[in-house]
Nucleic acid binder design. Structure first.
Length: 271
DNA sequence: AACATGGTCAACCGCAGTCGC
DNA sequence: TGCGACTGCGGTTGACCATGT
């Protein structure tokens, strides 16, 4: 019935974002916020799908993002949270202000996994590795290597039922059902976290103060075109006005007049 | 200096859950 | 109530850069 497809797959640009695209997106989002991502590229005059815009914004352009490597405290927290939550990167990211799930996921796969393995800790189960992963004469396939070699990751991860009854927030309490051996804050994972990062204290402010990433407190300075704009809050604006104006035609051609009604405030910094 | 290999990370893909019609 | 659109999430890919030979 009435809904429009997410995006016309044809004619949309893919691949790395250019500075110009970034600027358009940032300018648009900072002055108008986003109501539904599908419309954002149209309204911002971008040849991207909404999904791509959302990803670019959340992973790179958000004003509250921290840049650079994770600190040792953050790293330790990630390890600890991973022990509790598994690969629920978004939930882990929610506990680390200014960090994205993508960033954490990448950091996990490239740094932390290795560290844990070096320490003899299985990055999946967060327990000491008992048996050698694989006989020496048996090289990994490329795929296996990419996946980190031996462990049946997905299977193992289901120490919290994979999606099953998705416990969501209960998960954050690390229910016993999801934690074999009644893993708690003093789980091997915590030990690992502490070992990886001696300065770790999982109860450090980073974990508690967070709740929502993007607390204004963490809007650290980062060199980005976004600095050119004023983050002022606009998420609460009257999007109905925009929507009624954009219809089905290409918003990029609608000109900017459309936005003249919108003051550019009310951005609730949801990120 | 040139090539090979490995590491990093931004971005894409596809699935699942949620919501609106 | 069912269907389909929309959003968010996790996994994967591929380009780029650094280091080693």
């Amino acid at each position: 019935m009435g809904r429009q497809p997410c995006c016309e797959k044809v004619g949309l640009k893919k691949g790395p974002w250019t500075a110009e695209e970034d600027q358009k997106l940032v300018a648009f989002l900072l002055s108008h916020g986003h109501c539904c991502w599908r419309l954002v590229p149209k309204l911002a005059g971008l040849l991207r799908c909404g999904k791509s815009c959302r990803l670019r914004w959340t992973n790179y352009l958000r004003p509250d993002l921290k840049r650079g490597l994770l600190s040792s405290e953050e790293e330790a927290l990630v390890i600890d949270l991973h022990a509790q939550l598994g690969n629920r990167w978004s939930k882990i990211a929610a506990r680390l202000p200014g960090r994205t799930d993508n960033e954490i996921k990448n950091h996990w796969n490239t740094h932390i996994k290795k560290k844990l393995k070096k320490m003899g800790i299985d990055p999946v189960t967060h327990r000491p590795i008992t048996s050698p992963p694989r006989p020496e004469g048996e090289p990994l396939t490329h795929q296996e290597e990419r996946r980190g070699g031996d462990e049946p990751e997905q299977a193992a991860l289901s120490q919290g039922p994979p999606g099953g009854a998705d416990q969501e927030d209960e998960d954050e309490e690390a229910p016993a059902s999801a934690q074999p051996q009644g893993t708690t804050a003093s789980s091997p994972a915590s030990t690992a976290a502490a070992a990886v990062s001696p300065s770790c204290s999982s109860s450090s402010a980073s974990a508690s103060a967070v709740a929502t990433p993007g607390g204004a407190a963490d809007v650290a300075a980062w060199p980005n075109p976004i600095d050119l704009f004023e983050v002022d809050g606009i998420m609460d604006m009257d999007w109905a006005g925009i929507l009624s104006g954009c219809g089905d035609d290409d918003g990029a051609d609608m000109g900017v007049d459309l936005f003249d009604h919108y003051p550019g405030d009310g951005f609730d910094q949801q990120y």
